[in-house]
Simulated scan of single mutants.
Amino acid sequence: MFCRNSKGYEMAKRFNSKFTHLSPVWYDLKSHGNSLILEGRHNADKGWISELRMRGNALILPRIVLEAFPTELLKKKKQMDKAIDLMVTECKEMEYDGIVLESWSRWAAYGVLHNPDLRNMALKFIKQLGHTLHSVTSTRNPKQQLQLVYVVGPPHSEVLQQHDFGPADLQSLSGSVDGFSLMTYDFSGPNNPGPNAPLNWIRFTLRLLLGSTGNNAQRLAPKIFLGINFYGNDFILSEGSGGAGAILGRDYLSLLEKHRPQLQWEKNSGEHFFVYFDDNNVRHAVFYPSLMSIYMRLEEARFWGTGISIWEIGQGLDYFFDLL
């Protein structure tokens, strides 16, 4: 479960027993001239971590976003080794239980994943990082290895593209990665207003990665953490003035109180939404999670045998946690 705001940190303490992993959004690994630096230790809150560990057993795996120039990083063994050393050393010094790594989307943006050789090097890097983390035991529990959770996005079309994370990648990395945080949200945007994470799209993504049935799905499904959004979107619908903004629980409640809209259920996507007109008479549509929409996604995860990951725990309404 990801957290990066004060309410998220508080929810992590309050509902600690409901989580297996907590991932504070703290770090970036960046290129610095010909070198690499890991930024973010100043964000780390040791007091919060200590309090969490007194309250429960959730593992602390901070997120690291790999911002370093990928061609330099992946082509040069010294750079690759240095990047891995920086991350593993940070885990040791700060007594983390591992890391959540986000790099696939960055590599796709740089065009790295369109090059077969660089793509293979990217997979090799993730494997090497996983094996190195697994070679280190936790300072708190000698029986436990440091873990790697890897962030992956859903495919962008029904036909897998070269830059998409697909079933072969899942299979290839399954021995080196402890979990895959699957970003099954952000389906709609300003140019195509609509649901945040349609249920049929979630099913399609899981079917694509795991296959419909069989031993492979049963073996790999527990390593997937199905992404569930606790935020929503407020879309502008008026012609010529398209736009959108993410909304959190407090924003959602304010809109309900001010406009008193009628909630509507979108059956195909399995999401609630409402329409309102703002002070300038501009029409909006708001899609925000509800107990029903979250319940249906939890049932989908249960059907496939996957875990879940929440982006992010401070953005929802408190009673969402009643379902977990």
Score class of each variant (00 low, 15 high):
residue 257 E to T: 08
residue 259 H to G: 05
residue 205 T to N: 14
residue 316 G to T: 04
residue 261 P to L: 10
residue 190 P to S: 13
residue 273 F to C: 14
residue 265 W to F: 06
residue 294 I to A: 08
residue 257 E to R: 06
residue 193 P to I: 01
residue 266 E to F: 07
residue 279 D to K: 04
residue 291 L to H: 15
residue 244 A to G: 08
residue 309 S to W: 08
residue 203 R to N: 08
residue 217 A to Y: 02
residue 227 G to E: 11
residue 258 K to S: 13
residue 205 T to V: 14
residue 313 I to C: 08
residue 248 L to A: 13
residue 221 A to G: 03
residue 297 R to A: 10
residue 212 S to E: 15
residue 222 P to N: 02
residue 284 H to C: 05
residue 285 A to L: 07
residue 215 N to V: 12
residue 269 S to V: 04
residue 279 D to I: 01
residue 243 G to H: 00
residue 303 F to C: 01
residue 294 I to P: 12
residue 280 N to G: 13
residue 213 T to D: 15
residue 207 R to M: 08
residue 196 N to S: 13
residue 271 E to H: 03
residue 296 M to D: 13
residue 186 D to F: 13
residue 234 D to Q: 09
residue 266 E to C: 10
residue 222 P to S: 04
residue 197 A to F: 07
residue 258 K to L: 11
residue 193 P to L: 06
residue 228 I to H: 07
residue 186 D to R: 05
residue 263 L to P: 00
residue 285 A to G: 05
residue 256 L to H: 03
residue 258 K to D: 07
residue 287 F to P: 01
residue 314 G to S: 10
residue 220 L to M: 11
residue 286 V to I: 13
residue 266 E to M: 09
residue 306 T to S: 11
residue 256 L to P: 00
residue 272 H to K: 01
residue 200 N to F: 13
residue 229 N to G: 12
residue 309 S to G: 10
residue 315 Q to A: 14
residue 313 I to N: 07
residue 305 G to L: 05
residue 265 W to S: 04
residue 188 S to M: 04
residue 200 N to R: 00
residue 309 S to K: 01
residue 241 S to F: 07
residue 300 E to F: 01
residue 221 A to K: 02
residue 287 F to G: 01
residue 283 R to W: 03
residue 263 L to M: 14
residue 280 N to H: 12
residue 217 A to D: 00
residue 250 R to P: 10
residue 233 N to K: 09
residue 272 H to F: 10
residue 323 L to I: 13
residue 269 S to I: 01
residue 301 A to H: 00
residue 265 W to R: 01
residue 232 G to I: 02
residue 197 A to K: 00
residue 236 I to L: 08
residue 248 L to C: 09
residue 233 N to T: 03
residue 279 D to N: 11
residue 204 F to N: 05
residue 221 A to Q: 02
residue 199 L to N: 06
residue 247 I to G: 09
residue 223 K to I: 12
residue 216 N to F: 13
residue 291 L to Y: 11
residue 308 I to R: 01
residue 259 H to R: 02
residue 243 G to Q: 04
residue 215 N to E: 15
residue 269 S to C: 10
residue 322 D to E: 14
residue 295 Y to R: 12
residue 217 A to S: 12
residue 282 V to R: 13
residue 297 R to C: 11
residue 202 I to H: 00
residue 250 R to A: 15
residue 190 P to C: 02
residue 263 L to Y: 02
residue 268 N to E: 14
residue 212 S to R: 14
residue 198 P to D: 11
residue 254 S to M: 05
residue 203 R to H: 04
residue 253 L to A: 09
